[in-house]
Structures are given as C-alpha cells and as structure tokens.
Amino acid sequence: MTVGTTVAGPATTTVAGPATPPVQPRRNVLLQRIWRERWAYTFIIPGALFFLVFAYVPMLGNVVAFQDFSPFRGIAESPWVGLANFTAIFSDPQVLVALRNTLLIAVLQLIFAFPAPIALALLLDSLLSDRIKRMVQTVVYLPYFLSWVIVISVWQQVLGGGGLAANILSDLGVQGFDAMTNPDTFKLLVVAQNIWKDCGWGTIIFFAALAGIPRELYEAAAMDGATRWQRMWNVTLPGLVPVATLLLILNIGSILTVGFEQLLLQQPMVGADAAEVLDTFVYFRGVIGGEWGIATAAGLLKGVIGTILVLGANRVAKKLGGEGIF
C-alpha cells in the first residue's frame, strides 16, 4: 500500500513510475500524479459523492418549477407548462403577503438583531473582571444551542396566554395578556426571539475581532489624550468594520430567508396574514397543499434572488474598499 506514496517531493515526479513515452509528457505527468496520490482519492470520493447527490442533484429537481408536477406521475411523466407557474406566483395575493412579511421581518432584523451582538460584545469587553466576563458569556451563549421548538415552547410558557406574564398581569388587574398570538406585534416578537436566542453567540466573532485590534493603537490614542468614548469611536469601531461588513453581506444574501422553523412553528398561533413568509408559503402550498410546481417555482425564485443579492453585496463591499467574502 505504500509503493506510490514513498516518492518525496514534487520535483521527483519525472523519475517516478515506468518510462515516460516522449509524445504526451504533460498528460502522463498528470496521470502519474493521480496514480501517486491514489489513496488520497479514497478520502475525497465519498464526500464528493455526498455533495453531488445531496446538494447538486436536488438542484436538478428544480425543473419541477416548469412543470405541472404530481408525485404520482414523477418528473418524467409530468407535463411541461413553461413559465405558467411563475406567472401564477405573481398574481397570487398570498405571495405578496409572504413577500411583505419576509421583507418587513428582514428589515427589522437588520435594524435590531444585527447590531445587538456588537453592542453586547462592546459591553462585555469593557468589563474589567475576566471572571464576570466569562460567566456572562457562558449564560448568553446557551440559548443558541436550544432548538426553535424548545425556544418557542419556553416563550409560550412565559409570554403566552396562561403563562407567567399573563398570570402576573391578571393579579394586577390586566386580563387576557398573550404576546404570542397578537398579530400586530408578532414581527417584533420574532425579532426579540432572535435576539434572545442568537445575540450571545453572535458576539463570539466580534470578540475575535476585538482581540485582533493592536493594543498600541489604544495606547497611542490614550497618550494623545483621547477619552474613553473617543477611543471607542476611533479605534474600536473601525476595528470591527471588516467583520461587520462580512456579516452584513451574508445577512443580505439571506434576506429572503427569515427564521423558517421559527415562523413555521408560530404560524398556527398568529395566522397566515402576520406570519406567512416565503419559506412557509413553499411548505404549505407545496408539501401540504400539493401545488408542487408553484411552490417549487417560488422557492427557486427565492434562491436565485438570494444568490444575486449576496454576489451584489459582495461586489459593493469590495467597491467601497472593504474585503468581500470571496
């Protein structure tokens, strides 16, 4: 098993293996390299096959978007309908509701949930005691590891009808409090749940960025008489910009994907008008409703727009002189 791998260094490729016919030297060198590394492929091939089958093959399944698909007939037998599914999407009022809710929640997330970890990281970083800092970190990371089912169940027990808050308020004379089923405030509730669950975990990446800011900058600023706030404004925040830009790009790319499980779980409680987003539309219309073609078309459209957005945001970030993702 070791014959092919004992050759040391890339420079010796020409002496390894049998005599090389002079006609196609390049091709043979490549074949030799492949043969020499044949054991490496036993590591790569299973994983590559996995991604091929479970990430790329489903892409082909998107052809259903151009069909009047039924699972009984399958892709081969279902009739092609061209762009009919897409025109049906644009005239469907439910899609407009889903799109509006999606964008509203995404914007609220960008305003409230996006800066929250930055603020928390700055607050924790300003603590002088490492022990307290670590203790708080331990606590705020925890909710990230709970599933959405658990998070929403817990919230339900605290803020839902008959929950803790409702009990306290009814003792105070306010009846019928139920924050979990109020469609008017639902979008803010979604953002609050997001901050509760992910804000702590989100600080990790900012801590890394904070640790990367050279201390000499702070010292120099302090020497020049910069106050605490001036140091934060002129040293700390600029140091966080690259990471924040990176996360912003990723966020913009997923602007059409707002907390799918989170909304799916709560939609029955608040109703579709407040809680239908594009992903739940695809699920309810396609898997539950059986309108496979239309649902797939909506999902495909969403995926394509998301990819365009992330590429666009990446380009803008690079134009503005920052670093992109790729």
Partner: peptide, 23 residues
C-alpha cells in the same frame, strides 16, 4: 492531489445556495 481543488470549490459553493424544500 489533482482535482482536489475542484472538489473543494464544489463543496464551498454549496454554502451559498440550497436547492429548496421541495427538490
């Protein structure tokens, strides 16, 4: 390893798209 780079790119690309629920 010839071809490893291509597989790496193929894997990385999956982080930026997903086929969707129904496919």
């Amino acid at each position: 390893v010839p071809g490893a780079k291509a597989v790496l790119i193929m894997v990385l690309a999956t982080m930026f798209f997903s086929a969707g629920i129904i496919p």
